[in-house]
Amino acid sequence: MLNQLPPLKETPSQTAGPYVHIGMTPSLEGITGPNVRDLGAGPVPGNGPRITATGCITDGSGAPVIDAVVELWQADADGNHTAAWARIACDGTGRFSFDTVKPGRVAGPDGKLMAPHLTLWIVARGINVGLHTRLYFGDEAEANQSDFVLNRVMDPRRRQTLIATPSVADGKPVYTLDIRLQGEGETVFFDI
C-alpha cells in the first residue's frame, strides 16, 4: 500500500501478568540449570560511586505490589549510557533494591545538563502498559532545580514523587524512593 503514514502500527502492549518471573527472573521460580539464567541480576556494572537505590511499590489501597518487576537503565558517572541495565523482582513487601552506581549528568533536550537520575520501568499483573518513571537524588538540590524533566512537572508537590531520600547504611549511600501507582502521592509516570 502506498503513502501510508507510518506504514505499521506499534504492537499493542499486554500486561506482563502474575507469572512474569518465569520469563524475566526465572531462578526465583526454581527454573535453573545449565540452559537458564537471569539477565540483569546482580550489581549494576558501571563507573562511579556505588549506591543502593531502593523503594517500595504500593497500589491505590496502600498494599505492597509484591509481584512487580522493575528495570533500571541509567548513565554511568561519566554521563554515558553504556551497560548500566538491571532488573529485579519486588520482594514480599513490594521492595525493589538495586546495587548500582550514582550516575553523572546527561544533556537534556534543551542542551542543558539534566540532574543525575535513574530511569525505571515497572511491569506487573494489573499494569496494562509498562510504567516509565525516574529516580532523582535528594542530595542534588541545585541540579534538580534546573532539571528539564522535573520542571515539566507543573505541581511542585508531585515533583517530590520523583526525588529519593538519601541516607547511609553500612557506609554506603542509600537512596529511597517509594512508588505509588495510584491515589494520594501518586508517582509521576511518563509518556515518553
Binding site: D59, G126, I127, N128, Q182, G183, F189
Partner: peptide
C-alpha cells in the same frame, strides 16, 4: 488494574 492504574 483497578488499584494499579495511575489516575493522573
Amino acid at each position: 488494574t483497578t488499584l494499579r492504574a495511575p489516575k493522573q
